[in-house]
Design a protein around this nucleic acid. Structure first.
Lengths: 226, 226
DNA sequence: TAATTGTTCTTCGTATACACTTTGCCCGAA
DNA sequence: TTCGGGCAAAGTGTATACGAAGAACAATTA
């Protein structure tokens, strides 16, 4: 939200709680902690080699972000994305990413576009190398970059959080749609470069529709709503 | 996010941290703690009559929600909504509330519509009584109710958070547009009742545009971007 | 004046203690 | 066997204390 303030003064300390939060997020996204799994404070503290306090603080934020559910007096449990909430998530994401694409188209500088093109190139190359993990990573980077170019911190922060959840679902669903979606990405960047907000928004929607359909299928297979 | 789980078992305990968080939020929204004001843990702990631990946990969540900014090793400060971020916020809110209106139109039951109508009636009455505080409150309730009817928990949770920020800005801007906006609300509920998603979305956008313009003016007057 | 040194205030993290719930298990009764 | 009760273990919620490290600010010195 306030990245502009954050790095103002010698504040590169990275508190333990933030490290724990990051580790917890990736552990959940990577499936190290599975949906429904119980997360006791002591255990997390031990896993991460810290005391209970940083863990508790990280858990509260993770709850706010929707990665865990906290039952009072019963503790934290890894959230279970049901297929219902997946559809809901994409409905929101669609609106938000469309807005991001429009804003990016309206505000992108030549340098911004160049950085997107560079990502596209790397993506094409990685696709040829069949390095799927790298493609997925570049995929994320591209989306995040567009959010950043949109210049709207609210949008950026909210969509970023949603995006993490998408990754989570995809990871669990195990399928990699990344290479296939790369053509859509090129359309999107072209549209952003053109400066045509309507066109960019349409490209984003097309892309999201396809991604949503794919994610939905995967999730249907991999999950049962609890 | 998971209200359905939350109240499953005897979990009406309401931990201190949640009470503190709620109190902190309202204190900030009500202007008891002003933007830029420093919030030391000791002070908050004393203000709320609790130990520092619940305070710290509440602060982390408040940060995630954008109410405070935490500078590592320097502590928490009440966030300062600049006019820039206000515009950004409304841009996001516009998309989200439009989606909410559409979904509500598509999913609302007769009982849902009736509850909205009831709120509208109470609003009209309160307007006649010139009870502005009550009108503002009903305003919030109406919007929140529509979000709930939309049946999309992500949408609901995100928009709810944004809505709190809107209230914050309005409160600080001191102006009350509420009565004037009531006509727009009627349009919105009519559209939802009609079940016409497009029409509902359009009504929401019209309403948001007007509200945004008003908020923006107020904020311009009441603030200087820091 | 500018640089340096102290001092103080706070945060950050650890550790500990303890009340109170929840859970799980064992055991006895139907 | 199954059900219910009771008991102990586990784990959260909260408070408290303490030490280390950083930041802010004032005082001191060059």
């Amino acid at each position: 939200m306030a990245e502009d303030l954050r790095d103002k003064l010698g504040a590169q300390h990275l508190p333990l709680r933030d490290q724990v939060l990051a580790a917890l997020r990736t552990a959940i996204i990577d499936g190290d902690y599975l949906p429904g799994e119980r997360l006791t404070e002591d255990r997390l503290a031990e896993d991460f080699g810290v005391s209970r306090n940083p863990v508790r603080e990280a858990l509260r934020v993770a709850e706010a972000e929707g990665f865990v559910v906290i039952l009072p007096r019963r503790g934290a449990v890894v959230a279970s994305p049901s297929s219902g909430t997946i559809a809901d998530m994409f409905a929101v994401r669609e609106r938000l990413e469309a807005l991001a694409a429009r804003l990016a188209a309206e505000r992108a500088t030549a340098a911004d576009v160049a950085s997107l093109r560079a990502l596209l190139d790397q993506g094409r190359e990685a696709t040829q190398r069949k390095d799927l993990a790298r493609v997925a990573e570049l995929n994320s980077t591209l989306h995040l970059r567009i959010l950043q170019i949109s210049g709207n911190p609210w949008l950026s922060s909210i969509a970023k959080s949603l995006y993490l959840h998408v990754q989570w679902i995809f990871r669990l669903g195990a399928a990699e749609r990344a290479p296939h979606s790369w053509a859509e990405h090129i359309q999107l960047v072209d549209a952003i470069e053109s400066g045509d907000g309507d066109r960019a928004e349409r490209a984003a929607l097309d892309h999201l529709d396809a991604a949503s359909a794919a994610a939905y299928e995967n999730a249907e297979g991999g999950y049962a709503a609890r």
